[in-house]
């Protein structure tokens, strides 16, 4: 809770996304990323840290989630809020969600990785492969033979 009010005292780190946008982020937030932590340990901290694999809109999302996650500790309501936001993004814009997951993985943010994976797992629960493909816009790339084998092996019908 207090982290927002004393933001002036903490150190600011400058990062550049793959499309050239520059972000100024509090050190405490940036250090959630193990990748940035390692880069800082390797003494790249004085310059702008480049993030060649993350675009600005996605990076913005990551920072937002990191900030909220830091606030969320021992706060059940915030936890719920963040969760519903994650679920909303997954429903409305699954493509961005997949990019968010990729970025979180690249930046190596453990806590956020667990959260985003859990939200996706909860989203997938009780859904058939076809419905999952439809909702997340995933191409069915199985050969007809593979598809037939999968159907033969587990013909699950959900109640």
């Amino acid at each position: 809770m207090a982290s927002t009010s004393n933001s002036t005292s903490s150190k600011i780190i400058t990062l550049r996304s793959s499309d050239g946008e520059v972000f100024e982020v509090e050190e405490s937030v940036a250090l959630e990323s193990n990748l940035i932590r390692r880069m800082m340990e390797d003494d790249c901290a004085n310059n702008i840290i480049p993030l060649p694999n993350v675009t600005a809109p996605i990076f913005y999302l990551v920072i937002e989630h990191c900030k909220k996650h830091a606030e969320m500790k021992d706060n059940k309501e915030k936890k719920k809020e963040l969760r519903s936001q994650g679920e909303e993004l997954l429903k409305s814009d699954p493509h961005t969600y997949s990019n968010l997951m990729e970025a979180v993985n690249y930046l190596d943010i453990k806590s956020l990785m667990d959260l985003t994976a859990q939200w996706l797992a909860d989203f997938l629960k009780g859904k058939s492969p076809r419905l999952i493909r439809e909702l997340l816009k995933i191409k069915n790339d199985f050969t007809p033979e593979e598809e037939a084998e999968i159907l033969e092996r587990n013909r699950w019908a959900f109640d």
């Binding site: 994976a117 797992a121 997938l124 058939s128 492969p129 999952i132």
Partner: peptide, 16 residues
Amino acid sequence: IRLHICDHLSFRGVCV
């Protein structure tokens, strides 16, 4: 790994 077995099977049926 966060999915129960039936959902896990569905997961495996999505794509290669």
